[in-house]
Simulated scan of single mutants.
Amino acid sequence: MNPIYHQAKFINSSPHIRNAPADQGLEVAFAGRSNAGKSSAINTLTQQNALARISKTPGRTQMLNFFEINAELRFVDLPGYGYAKVPADVKKKWHEMMEHYLTHRKSLCGIILVMDVRHPLTEFDRQMVEWCQHTHLPLHILLTKADKLAYGAAKSTLLQVRKELKDVGCPLTVQLFSSLKKTGIDEVHEALDNLFSRAEPDQSEISAPS
């Protein structure tokens, strides 16, 4: 477990990338369907009960929500997609906002894609995987709500998802996770460490001044 993630704090919510914090340092974005347990996962891995807003109504996350870990590292909670009962034009704006963020944000160094273990690889999930494949952006998949299935069934789904995505042309890892049972936290922290460290410059390749 890496306690650095426990110090995460809310920075701001932005309806557009132009209102986001300065595009410096490194960011890992959390994406997923509205009812996949994304906010719960963020709260669990930071050991904070209300860092990310949780609602009984899926789709309440309608902006880009930024959280500071330290001066150089951030989390970004992307709008949930695919379930919320909102007008089509609002969904269109969400999609455009996320697409613009994913395309233009230079500090973005990895994606945590949250899927309900009972309903993995929805159309939106596949779109995110394809986007990461196209851009070679590292991707870590959380199969959440693992407590809702027997261990054998959850493990089977994990292996199935890994098999189906084994030829994806980007760095990809998959794990089981449960906010309720607090399982898989160490594995998420390790994945975050890897995502952030992967994007850091290799000091050995930086020439010393002559």
Rank of each mutant, 00 (worst) to 15 (best):
R126M: 07
V168P: 01
K93P: 00
H100Y: 02
G110E: 02
F75P: 05
V129D: 01
P171Q: 10
V86I: 15
G80D: 07
S107E: 02
T173S: 15
E205C: 03
P138C: 05
E123K: 15
K91C: 00
R126V: 04
R118M: 02
V90T: 03
G169V: 05
A71M: 04
R126K: 14
S107W: 04
N70Y: 00
I111Y: 03
H104G: 04
A199K: 13
L165E: 01
A146S: 15
S179M: 03
L159G: 10
L113Y: 04
H189G: 11
L172V: 08
E205S: 10
Y83A: 02
P87A: 09
I141Q: 02
L102M: 14
E72Q: 13
T157A: 07
S178V: 06
Y81S: 09
T103G: 11
K92T: 07
P120W: 12
H134R: 15
G184V: 03
R126H: 05
A146I: 07
D77C: 06
Y83E: 07
K145T: 09
Y151L: 12
A150H: 15
T183Q: 12
H136S: 15
E130L: 11
I69M: 06
W94I: 11
D202C: 09
A146P: 13
P138E: 04
Q160P: 03
E96L: 14
E164I: 08
E164K: 13
L180Q: 14
H136N: 14
E187K: 12
G152Q: 11
A150F: 03
H189V: 09
A199V: 10
D77K: 06
I141V: 15
S156W: 01
L158H: 10
L142K: 09
M98Y: 13
L172W: 04
L165A: 06
K166C: 11
R105I: 08
E187A: 13
Y151E: 14
Y151M: 11
Q203I: 09
Y83F: 15
S178I: 05
A150I: 12
K155E: 11
K92Q: 13
M128Y: 02
V168I: 14
S156E: 15
L73F: 12
M98Q: 13
K93F: 00
V129R: 07
D116N: 09
K181P: 04
F177R: 10
K148C: 05
Q203H: 02
E187P: 01
L158P: 04
L142Y: 07
K145A: 08
F75W: 07
C109R: 09
M97P: 08
E123C: 03
L121V: 06
L165Q: 08
E130W: 09
F124H: 10
T157W: 08
A199N: 11
K166H: 12
D186H: 05
F196S: 05
E123H: 14
L108A: 06
S207R: 06
R198W: 02
G82M: 12
L137N: 04
Q160M: 13
